[in-house]
Structures are given as structure tokens and as C-alpha cells.
Design a binder for these strands. Structure first.
Length: 476
RNA sequence: GGCGACAUACCCAAGUGGUAAGGGAGAGCUCUGCAAAAGCUUUAUUCAGCGGUUCGAAUCCGCUUGUCGCCUCCA
């Protein structure tokens, strides 16, 4: 019996059997990064989750159309005009043009994507390549009576015209009104109304602006995702993903403007990744959601600099359920790195030895693994199944190898191939030392032998004496 | 102020009514000249605290404590 795929749907707040609008095809849109700075590993956790989802869909034989956007338009940081534009802020910080900043960080992001072994999306879509589509969407909303103009400010979406607005995120709008809210835009009809198009102030020239029926300006905070998703995937998506922090505002708004314009369900499944939390420092500061502004700004580059592999971080993410909080600490990452290393030690000897998976036993392991993964991406349990499987003495090596290869299609840890762990050559003088140690050992000069072992250890090389009399070394 | 989430061993963490997965670290054993690596064994009478429902609760309900988040932008 093949296990059935089911995912937790934020829209219904329940886990539902997965179905698609069109048989065999999955249209999936994932909110991507704003490219004004490097992505930190908290941002990246969401993309790792989405990659896991993507792999499960691929594994099931779906033709997946997977779109990830690149937000290269700077949006203001608040409703009020007082907010700073992230892109312009980035440009000012680095003395570059906004376009250069966008290009630089887009490349950096894609590099991180590859390092984490994320499958390339079917298509990357850039916000600035879709200005006409965004304008068209706003025009449709205006024609349907969902939009209103605040002169010299912009076009806004009237959330009162979309009665379901609060449902998706379970917003308590009355409670929000009671809250002290600073920087309310003059002229907004409802606190939840949001800009569809912002008109540039007459006295300031923006680095990125376009002509529109409402005046020169730039698209609002949320239209790009609706416009691009519907252009490339049609009015109804199968899955829309993002980080949990997008639920309340961004995704509520996307639903309002998309469904307002088309009259049909925008996305059948909504899936959101949990946050990466930062441990507080020893003095009790920091802690909470990882961000660029607070605490340590941890990027993949920093990980590599500290001698972790990007896949160590991927493994770290695999250890926790995608919807739960994950506590990041260097100690926890050490754990993940050691775990992956020891996992590789078990799976490396199996590379290239796969046979067919035919025995009852092997099929049972495969079923258990898939049951875990198909149950709302239960990768932590799946990892437990993998570990137990590797220890099963009744399983033939060929089948073990085949299972590892099969599971890794979903895990994406590179367990089935020899990675770039290149054969390093022991530097000449050290090789000579190793020879000398061999002689010492033959003469039972344990003192000298141990000295040399310590010396090599200091240089970063471990030594191990094999039972057959040979000696091997490995980088520590 | 309003709303919400979370709290499982040394660390990460699974488990949402049936009697605590898995990994790492640690410990013991085997192996070894000693190590390393590997293999085996082992590590929570207990799930923040208190009370309740139940034949039965980490799992449901209530209260308390603590941490974090949202009500600006955010993966």
C-alpha cells in the first residue's frame, strides 16, 4: 500500500490529502528574497523546506512548475512615507546603483541556493521584469471597484470590499485598531488597506520608478507576487509557500488582490516554514527570530568561513519539522556536522553498490521512510528510519545502497555520490614524518611514534593504524 | 495594551489519548603497544510547575511561571 501525500494547509489550519487542480501537474509559487543584502540562514531555512517539498513532489512523478521570485524593487519599510527603501538603503550603504545591488545579491542568493543543494526552480521571476503585469492587475482591481486613489500618494486596496480579508490569517482587526499604531497613512479607509501603486513624491526622484495611469511611481508592496504567479501559473495555484512571517500581511494581501481580480481561489494549498531562532548570548541579549539587524548575521559565507559545509546546515534543518521553530546555535550546528559526517562514513562505502530493492524487508524500510516524508514532510522521523535501516543486519548491502540512493533523492544530502571531498595529498614533509613513524613503530619506539602522531594532529591530520599493518591519514 | 505560539535528557529534536523515536556528545566493553576508526552496550519511572477530565495524558481543559512572536518590513 503506497502511503498518501498529505500536507498541512495554512488556509484550513488542518492537514489535508494533497490533490492537484490538473492531474499530474503541480503549480507552485514560492516567495523569494528581496535582494538588498545577503540572505541569512534563517531566510534560507524556508528555501530548504521548499526544496524538500519540491523533491517529494518530483519523487511522486508530478510535473512541477516551480517559480521563485526575486524582489528587486525596493519597497518602503512602512505604510507611511517615512520608511526607507531597502534597495536604496543597500545602494547607499555600498555606494552602488540599486540595479548593481540587485544584481550582486541575486547572484549571491543563487550561489547559496546551489551550495545548499536546492533544486533549481523552473523559473526565477524578477519583479522589475513584470511591471506591466502589475499595472494591469491594479487596473483590473480599480475597474472592479476594489481600489481607490489617495492623491499624490498612491492607489490602495480597500480591504472592506473583500469581506474574507481577515479569515486567512485569523486577524482580529478590531484588536488591531485598538493597538497604538504609529505612522498611519492619511486617507486610508481601513487600517488593513495596502498600497497597490505608490506615486513618487513630486520633489524627489527615486532610483527605480515607472510610468503608470496614476502617475510616475513604483508598484506596491505585494502586487508583484500576485502578478507573477498568475502570469506564469494561471489564476489558481496548487501550492503557495513562504515563511510564516508572510502569512499575516503579505499573503493576506496577495489573496485579497488576486481573488478580487479573478474571482477564483488563488492557491489551494498554503504552506509556511517555521522560523529559525537565535539563541540568546551569554549576557541574555539577542534571542528570538534570526534577523539581519539583531544578533549575529549568519550567512552561508560565514558558515564556510568557519569550516562548516553548507550541507551541514541543510542536515541541521532536516533534523526539525519544517513548521516548528528551530533553535540555532553553533553548538547545535556542530552536532549536525558531526551527525552528517558519521552518516557519510556509513553511507560512503555503499556508493555505487546499489542493487534492486526487492526483498520484503527492504520494501518495508522504504515504506516506513516514505510514510514519514509523505506525512507533512516528516523528515526528522525519516532520518530516524534511515539510521535504523543502516543498522539492520538482515539487509543485504546492495539493497542498503539502493535505499540510501533512493532516500537521498528526497534528503538531498549528496549521500549517493562522491562529493567534492577531493583527495588531498599529504604535504611532502609530513609524508616523510609518516614514513619515519612507520619505522619507529616497526622498532616498537612508541615514544617517537606518538610524538609524530601528535605533530601531525597539530598540523590538522589524523592518523589511524589499520589492523593489517598499514597506516592511513585523514584531515581532521 | 490586544492577540498568539512554544516549554521533552548534556545539546539538537520526534512524538497530539495507550504507557518517551533518532542523532550528536558522554560512559563502559571489544579491537589496539597506546590511540584513532569501527562494532556492541548504555544514558528521561519521565515530558516547566500545579490542578482537572479519563480505565489511561508529554499529548485534552484550566491556572501559574518562563521564553519568543505578531499588531511596521521580514523567510
Amino acid at each position: 500500500m503506497t502511503p498518501q501525500l498529505s500536507f498541512y494547509n495554512t488556509a484550513s489550519r488542518t492537514q489535508e490529502p494533497f490533490t492537484t487542480l490538473h492531474p499530474g501537474v503541480v503549480n507552485m509559487y514560492c516567495c523569494g528574497p528581496t535582494v538588498y543584502h545577503y540572505a541569512h540562514i534563517g531566510n534560507l531555512r524556508t528555501f530548504v523546506f521548499e526544496d524538500l517539498l519540491r523533491r517529494v513532489l518530483d519523487y511522486n512523478g508530478y510535473a512541477v512548475k516551480h517559480i521563485v521570485n526575486i524582489t528587486d524593487v525596493g519597497h518602503l519599510t512602512s505604510d507611511a512615507d517615512t520608511g526607507e527603501d531597502k534597495m536604496e538603503k543597500g545602494a547607499a550603504r555600498e555606494g552602488k546603483s540599486v540595479w548593481e545591488v540587485a544584481e550582486f545579491y541575486t547572484k549571491a542568493f543563487m550561489q547559496d541556493w546551489e551550495r545548499l543543494n536546492l533544486k533549481p526552480p523552473t523559473r526565477w521571476t524578477k519583479a522589475t521584469d513584470h511591471i506591466p503585469e502589475q499595472i494591469a492587475l491594479v487596473e483590473t482591481l480599480e475597474a472592479k471597484g476594489y481600489a481607490y486613489v489617495i492623491p499624490e500618494d498612491g492607489v490602495y486596496f480597500d480591504t472592506a470590499k473583500f469581506p474574507r480579508y481577515a479569515d486567512f490569517a485569523g486577524l482580529d482587526i478590531r484588536g488591531m485598531q485598538e493597538g497604538a499604531r504609529i505612522g498611519v497613512t492619511e486617507g486610508k479607509r481601513n487600517p488593513t488597506d495596502f498600497a497597490l501603486w505608490k506615486i513618487s513624491p513630486s520633489d524627489a526622484k527615486r532610483a527605480m520608478e515607472w510610468d503608470s495611469p496614476w502617475g510616475r511611481g513604483f508598484p506596491g508592496w505585494h502586487v508583484e507576487c500576485s502578478a507573477m504567479a498568475m502570469k506564469h501559473l494561471g489564476p489558481t495555484l496548487d501550492i503557495h509557500c513562504g515563511g510564516s512571517d508572510l502569512i499575516r500581511v503579505h499573503h493576506s494581501n496577495e489573496i485579497a488582490q488576486s481573488e478580487g481580480a479573478t474571482g477564483v481561489t488563488f492557491s489551494r494549498f498554503w504552506m509556511h516554514g517555521g522560523w529559525l531562532l537565535e539563541a540568546p548570548t551569554a549576557d541574555g541579549n539577542g534571542g528570538g527570530k534570526m534577523s539581519k539587524s539583531a544578533g549575529e548575521f549568519v550567512t552561508v559565507d560565514l558558515l564556510l568561513k568557519k569550516n562548516y559545509g553548507a550541507l551541514d546546515y541543510r542536515y541541521f534543518c532536516l533534523g526539525a519539522h519544517y513548521r516548528s521553530y528551530l533553535n540555532f546555535s553553533w553548538e547545535a550546528l556542530d552536532t549536525a556536522r558531526d551527525s552528517l559526517k558519521s552518516l557519510r562514513r556509513k553511507t560512503d562505502p555503499l556508493i555505487g553498490r546499489a542493487s534492486a530493492i526487492v526483498s520484503e524487508n527492504a520494501l518495508g524500510w522504504q515504506r516506513r521512510f516514505l510514510e514519514a516524508v509523505y506525512d507533512d514532510l516528516g523528515f526528522p522521523q525519516a532520518l530516524a528510519v534511515l539510521n535504523q535501516m543502516l543498522k539492520d543486519p538482515d539487509l543485504l548491502e546492495g539493497e542498503k545502497a539502493a535505499l540510501v540512493r533512493d532516500f537521498d533523492r528526497l534528503l538531498g544530502l549528496g549521500l549517493a555520490e562522491k562529493t567534492e571531498r577531493e583527495e588531498k595529498v599529504l604535504p611532502g614533509p609530513l609524508a616523510a614524518l609518516l614514513e619515519e613513524r612507520k619505522d619507529a613503530r616497526n622498532n616498537k619506539d612508541w615514544k617517537r611514534s606518538d610524538e609524530i602522531r601528535d605533530l601531525l594532529k597539530g598540523k590538522g591530520f589524523g592518523v589511524k593504524d589499520n589492523p593489517d599493518g598499514t597506516t592511513s591519514w585523514f584531515p581532521l
